[in-house]
Amino acid sequence: MSVEATDPALAATGTQEAPARRVNRSLAGRIVFCAVVAMLCLLPFVMVLVISFGEKIEGAGWVFGFDLTNYRRFFVGADWPNSTSFLYLQKLGWSLNYAVIASVLAVVTAFPFTYFLTRLSRRAQTFWLVFLLSSLSLSEVFIVMGWDILLSARSGLPMVMQETGLTDWLKDVGFFPTLRDWGLASPRNVKFKTSVLATVLTMSYLVWPYAVILLYPALSRLDPALIEAARTMGARPWTVIRTVVIPSVKLALVGSVLLLFVFLLGTYVAVTVFAAPAQQTLAVSIYESVRGSTLNAPFGAAQSVILLVTAVVLLAIGQKLSTAGGRA
C-alpha cells in the first residue's frame, strides 16, 4: 500500500520535470552537434569559397577581397578581353573525360565479375570479398608505382612486346601506324606513358574493388528464380542478362558509376604520372596553384569551387536521369 501511495507522487514530479530537462538537454546537445558538424564540414568549404574571391599579390601571398578575376581567368583566361584562353576549361574537360571513362570502364568490367561471384559458393564469395577489401588498403601511390613499372618503356610491357617480337608483328600486319595515331606508339616501339589509355586504365584499376563492392549487394539480392523463370520462357543466357539482370540492378549500376565518377574527379597521382602535360586535369592544376610553383591560393580555390559545382550538377543530372528511367 505504501508503495502505491508514494508512486503517483514520484510519477507526477517525474513527468513534469524530467521531460523538460530532457528537452533542454537534447536541444543543447543538438546545437552543439550541429555546430561541430558545421565546423568540420562546412567551414573548410566556406573558407575555400571566400578565398576564391581573394586577390593574389605578386611576389607575396594573397589578401581577402571580392574579386572575380580568378573566375574570369578560369573561363576566358587572364588576359581577357585582349585574348581568350580556354586552358582551364580544357583541364576541367580532361578531368571529366578521365573520370567518366574510368568509372564506366570499372563498373562495366566489375559487373560480370560480380555477377559470377554471386553465383559461387558462400565460402568462395567470402574469400573474394575479403581479398578485394584488403586490396583497398593499398595506397594510390603504391598502385600507380606498380602500373608505372608495368607500362614503362624500358622494363615494362613495351619491352616485353619488343623482346617477344610482338612489336615487329604489329608493324608487319600494318597495325602499328594506327597505334601511333592513337598516341600509343613511338616510332620504334609501343609506348603507354604518357597516354590517355594508361591514365584511364590505372584510374579504373584504382576504383575497381569499390565497383565490385557497390554492385555486390544488388546482385546477390537478385532472386535466382527470376533468371530461371526467364530461361523457361525461352531466354538465351545473354537475353537473360539483358532483359532481367541488368534492369533489376540498373539503379545500382548508375549509382556506382556516379559515385566512382565523383571519386575519380580528384585523382592526382595517376594523372601526374600517366597523362601527357597537355592533358593534365584540374585536380593537378589546383594542387599546383595552392602548393606548387605558382603559389596562387585564390585561383586554386576558384578552380576547386568550379570542380565541386560541376560534380554536384552532374550528380544531380545523373540522379534525375536514373530515377526518370526507373519510373518509365
Binding site: 528464380a225 530461371e228 523463370a229 526467364a230 530461361r231 523457361t232 520462357m233 525461352g234 534492369p247 533489376s248
Partner: peptide, 29 residues
C-alpha cells in the same frame, strides 16, 4: 537447355519481374 524446351513454369514465389508491369510480364516470352 531450359530455354529450348518450351515448357512453361510457375515458381513457388512466382518470380515475376519487378521491373516490368503485368502485361509486359505476361508477354515476356
Amino acid at each position: 537447355p531450359a530455354h529450348k524446351r518450351k515448357f512453361g513454369m510457375v515458381f513457388q514465389n512466382f518470380a515475376l519481374f519487378p521491373h516490368l508491369n503485368v502485361a509486359d510480364n505476361v508477354c515476356y516470352a
